[in-house]
Design a protein around this nucleic acid. Structure first.
Lengths: 145, 145
DNA sequence: GAGAGGATACTCGGATAGATGCTGTCCGAGTAACTGGGG
DNA sequence: CCCCAGTTACTCGGACAGCATCTATCCGAGTATCCTCTC
C-alpha cells in the first residue's frame, strides 16, 4: 500500500496557489517545481473536478482556490487524487467459504476511516503557515512578480 | 492507495490454520480456497519469515501458527505482507523549494499510525470467533479430516 | 530387529511472463482575452 | 468611437508509451519422513 506521487504534486501545488491566492496561477509556474507539465495538468484537473480549485481557460486563465484555505484539508486532496479504490473483498469469486463474512472489509474500512480522519485534521492554511510562513522560497521561484 | 490481494490471501490462510491449530496445514489445502498455489506459497513465506507462522518441510510438513491466535493481529499480517513502503517525499529530487518542510511526511505518517492502530485491535482469534464460530465451511472444504 | 539406502512428500526460492496502474509525453480541440483594422 | 475578425494565451482531454508492481506460473533444489531390503 503506497501513496502515489500525484498526491505530493497536488498538495504542493495547492500550497503554491494558496500563497498567491490574490491572483491566478499558471500551470507552467506549478510545473516549475520540477513536475512534468502535462502530467501535472491531469492532477490539476482532478482537483478542479472535485471542487478544490477553480480553473479558467484562455488568456489570463489559470487556477485559483475554489474556497478558503482553511476549508481545504489533506483529506479533500487525498480523496480527489487517490480516488476511493481501496479494498474490495474478492472471496466470492474464489471458492472461499468465508464469502465476505470474515470481517476483513469492515476492519479495513474502519482503519481507512481513522486514516482519513487524521488527514482531515490537516488544513492547507495550517500547513502553509507552519512550513513556509515567509514564503521566501515561493517568491524566489515565482516567475511572474 | 489500495490493498493487494496478498493481504486477503494471507488473512484467510491464517484463519484456516488457526481453526486447525492442532495439526499442520498443507499448502494445497489453503490453495483449495481458490488461490494460485505457487503464488500463495510466496505469501506464506512472507508470513513465515515475519514469525507469524512456522513451516516444516518434508513429509508431514506444512504450516502451523508460530504463536497463539490472540497474539496475532491484522497489523502483524498487514506489515508482513504489504511491507512498509508507504510514502517517501520526492521533493528533494525536484526543484521544489519545500524540500520536505511542508509537513506532508509527518501528516501521512500520523495517518498511517492511526490506520495500523485500528488494525492492531483486530485479533485473529476474534475474527475467527465472530465469523466462523462453527467452522462448518472449513470442515466442508477440508480434504484431510 | 536394526541399520542403510531409496522413494516419497513436502517447502524453498529463483526465473519468467502477463496484467494493471502509475508516470510521463504528445497533440489537437476548445475557449477567453487582447489587438488591429474598417465602418 | 465602435464593432468585428484574427491572433494569442491559456486549459481540456484523449491517445499513447515506458515502467514498476501485482499476480500468476513453472521448475529445479533441498529436506524430512517413511518404507523396504538386507543382514
Amino acid at each position: 500500500m503506497r501513496i502515489s506521487k500525484k498526491t505530493e504534486y497536488a498538495v504542493h501545488s495547492v500550497l503554491y496557489i494558496t500563497f498567491f491566492k490574490d491572483r491566478t496561477v499558471l500551470l507552467d509556474e506549478l510545473a516549475a517545481q520540477g513536475i512534468s507539465r502535462e502530467y501535472l495538468a491531469k492532477v490539476m484537473r482532478l482537483l478542479t473536478k472535485s471542487g478544490i480549485l477553480k480553473s479558467s481557460v484562455g488568456v489570463n486563465g489559470g487556477y485559483v482556490l475554489a474556497r478558503s484555505a482553511d476549508e481545504i484539508t489533506l483529506e479533500d486532496i487525498f480523496n480527489a487524487v487517490e480516488g476511493d479504490a481501496f479494498y474490495k473483498c474478492e472471496s466470492r469469486s474464489r471458492k472461499c467459504g468465508l464469502a465476505g463474512k470474515c470481517g476483513l472489509t469492515e476492519a479495513f474500512n474502519a482503519a481507512r476511516g481513522m486514516f482519513l480522519g487524521e488527514l482531515r485534521k490537516c488544513r492547507i492554511s495550517d500547513m502553509l503557515g507552519k512550513s513556509v510562513s515567509d514564503g521566501s522560497w515561493l517568491k524566489k521561484m515565482n516567475p511572474v512578480v
